[in-house]
Amino acid sequence: MRVALFTRWPEAGKAKTRLIPALGPQGAADLHRRLTERTVATVKAAGLALEIRSTGADPARFRDWLGVESVVDQGEGDLGDRLSRTAETLPVLLLGADIPGLLPQHLRAAAAALATAPAVIGPAADGGYWLLGLAEPMPQLFTDMAWGTDAVLAATLARLPPGTPRLETLSDLDTPEDLARWPGL
């Protein structure tokens, strides 16, 4: 079982762009850097294998920055294309780097659920999901999806097998309004 963490290089003006109005380009990039580092530490604390799915810089730069050996460029296409390629090797927990409330026990619960189910999902408060775990191929989860909208969770649930385990709902940090929930960041 591996966690595939999707993240981008923390370059000013290209990372966490929806936070730029509140934090400025460098502030948004700095926050993204901290969130990614925090997520890497959480995955390591959970005792799970970690693979970085990178974009925005050469994989070697991610290895140097995060101290993670397994780094794979996300490649081209929309989020569905990139997730689908990552889910070609199973089992996998697909994860983003923008969940400040993520704890090791959340990831251990996902891994435990996936040990007995074909899929597991972690709903996000904004109508998406913070984690999708797959033990079986399910390419239907990644096509014709309105990525980045509050319809993603409902559309994904409709395509998952009945009875798919759901994890605790967590909040991600995408917009200036989300910053109020995480004053320590």
Score class of each variant (00 low, 15 high):
69 E>V: 09
56 G>V: 10
94 L>E: 00
55 T>H: 11
88 E>V: 07
121 I>H: 03
148 G>W: 06
99 I>W: 08
175 T>R: 15
75 G>C: 03
119 A>L: 14
53 R>D: 01
108 R>M: 10
66 L>A: 11
77 G>C: 09
150 D>C: 14
181 R>C: 04
47 G>Y: 10
23 L>T: 08
64 D>G: 12
119 A>Y: 07
10 P>T: 06
156 T>F: 00
5 L>W: 00
13 G>Y: 14
13 G>A: 15
113 A>P: 06
101 G>T: 13
100 P>S: 03
161 P>D: 07
112 A>Y: 05
177 E>K: 15
30 D>Y: 04
18 R>K: 14
25 P>Y: 04
23 L>I: 08
99 I>L: 15
16 K>N: 12
55 T>E: 12
106 H>D: 15
106 H>A: 09
129 Y>G: 09
60 A>L: 13
31 L>E: 00
103 L>E: 10
182 W>T: 10
156 T>S: 04
150 D>S: 15
67 G>Y: 07
65 W>K: 14
135 A>I: 06
174 D>T: 13
120 V>Q: 02
91 P>G: 06
22 A>S: 14
80 G>V: 11
129 Y>Q: 09
70 S>D: 15
19 L>P: 01
49 A>Q: 11
56 G>M: 14
20 I>D: 03
73 D>L: 07
148 G>Q: 10
112 A>H: 10
22 A>E: 06
17 T>A: 13
36 T>R: 07
13 G>Q: 15
160 L>V: 02
87 A>M: 02
54 S>Q: 10
75 G>L: 03
81 D>A: 15
29 A>T: 06
46 A>F: 01
141 L>R: 07
175 T>D: 12
150 D>L: 13
160 L>W: 00
145 M>T: 14
170 L>G: 03
5 L>G: 01
45 A>D: 07
110 A>G: 05
17 T>R: 15
25 P>C: 10
34 R>H: 08
122 G>P: 02
87 A>G: 06
5 L>K: 08
126 D>S: 11
96 G>A: 11
99 I>D: 00
